[in-house]
């Protein structure tokens, strides 16, 4: 039996620096910061009125709403009876376009038998909720499409000036770089929601302010993404094209563009994807599209129509999401 203690059997004590008064103060500060953070967390719960009881108690109040939401209005036509006084202001019978006096009902003979029929002239079919909403969903998609297109067209040339690797070296380049970066940052800083409110004031409610808001905001986002793609290109082809005696423009066009085009297209598609969802929100401040109608339905407590909105948005966003993912995969 080995009685002599060998170093193998002794527990290893790692060398440790002795703690100075500074270490003690620092660990005290760390504890204090942790306590302060937890207190802030608690204050945040209080401030946001976070309360599960209220949530459960409120559930019964929205029963009617939930029932209506569960029954979306999918009518293609609605028949509305137009209520028109039978006599006009002068006390004479009101005539229709064929010169026949208006009645509530008409008596007609069908196969020799008298049948009472509602006067079809006063019972007009009108497009129902579904076609109206499909049309405004289409408007939403079109708003986002034009907004994105404008942003792509404008940010494409600007992105080259906002790339470090292209503007390095000359003072003009440095100024252009700073200026374009600043413009992108300013455009990104304004949420599209705020931009839409401004443009609704400028050009009136409708799809146009939506296009402007999305376009302007997307320039900032796309410009940043585009310029970052340009900054990460392989410099070898650039030098090779330069060595053929090409002009600066041609060096960019041949040395850089083929490298970044797939990324540019993928970013643009992704931005369109975001803008479709964004333009629904913009409808609420009067910038057209399905969001405008959704807001109105909710304000008028028409929940089954609002439910139709949600359904259509869900279907459209899902379809476009798949399409966008498919194309981005193809490009990548």
């Amino acid at each position: 039996m080995n009685t002599s203690p060998t170093s193998e059997h002794k527990p290893i004590v790692p060398p440790r620096k002795p703690r100075t008064w500074r270490d003690h103060v620092w660990s005290g500060v760390k504890w204090l910061l942790l306590v302060m953070f937890l207190a802030y967390l608690w204050a945040s719960f209080v401030r946001t009125e976070f309360n599960l009881y209220t949530l459960v108690a409120g559930a019964k109040d929205i029963k009617k709403v939930m029932l209506e939401l569960a029954h979306p209005d999918l009518s293609w036509y609605v028949y509305e009876t137009e209520r028109v006084p039978l006599l006009d202001e002068a006390g004479q019978p009101r005539l229709d376009s064929e010169g026949v006096p208006l009645t509530h009902a008409v008596l007609v003979l069908e196969d020799g038998k008298p049948v009472i029929k509602l006067d079809s002239r006063t019972n007009k079919p009108k497009l129902g909720t579904l076609p109206t909403l499909l049309d405004s969903m289409n408007e939403t998609v079109q708003i986002s499409l034009i907004g994105t297109l404008i942003a792509v067209i404008l940010s494409f040339p600007l992105a080259f000036f906002a790339s470090r690797n292209l503007t390095r070296g000359t003072s003009t380049g440095l100024v252009l770089y700073g200026a374009t970066r600043f413009v992108f940052n300013v455009l990104r800083a304004f949420p599209p929601y705020i931009l839409a409110i401004i443009f609704v004031f400028m050009v009136g409610p409708g799809p146009f302010p939506g296009v402007l808001a999305l376009g302007l905001h997307s320039i900032g986002m796309l410009g940043k993404l585009f310029s970052e793609a340009i900054e990460s290109v392989d410099p070898a082809p650039i030098e090779a094209v330069k060595a053929t005696g090409a002009s600066n423009f041609m060096v960019v066009w041949y040395g850089i563009l083929p490298q970044v085009v797939p990324q540019f297209l993928a970013f643009s598609l992704y931005r369109w994807d975001i803008n479709i969802r964004m333009s629904i929100i913009l409808g609420i401040v009067g910038a057209g599209g399905i969001g405008f109608l959704l807001d109105q339905y909710i304000r008028m407590f028409k929940y089954s129509q609002a439910s139709t909105c949600f359904l259509i948005i869900l279907v459209a966003v899902t379809l476009l999401d798949y399409a966008s993912a498919y194309f981005r995969e193809k490009l990548g």
């Binding site: 070898a236 082809p237 030098e239 330069k242 060595a243 053929t244 005696g245 090409a246 083929p258 797939p262």
Partner: peptide
């Protein structure tokens, strides 16, 4: 210098070919 480069070919260690074309 650009005019000179037109008449001077150059090849590189890492080829410098433009991708995707």
């Amino acid at each position: 210098a650009r005019m000179v480069r037109r008449d001077v070919g150059m090849i590189f260690q890492n080829f410098g070919l433009v991708p995707r074309v």
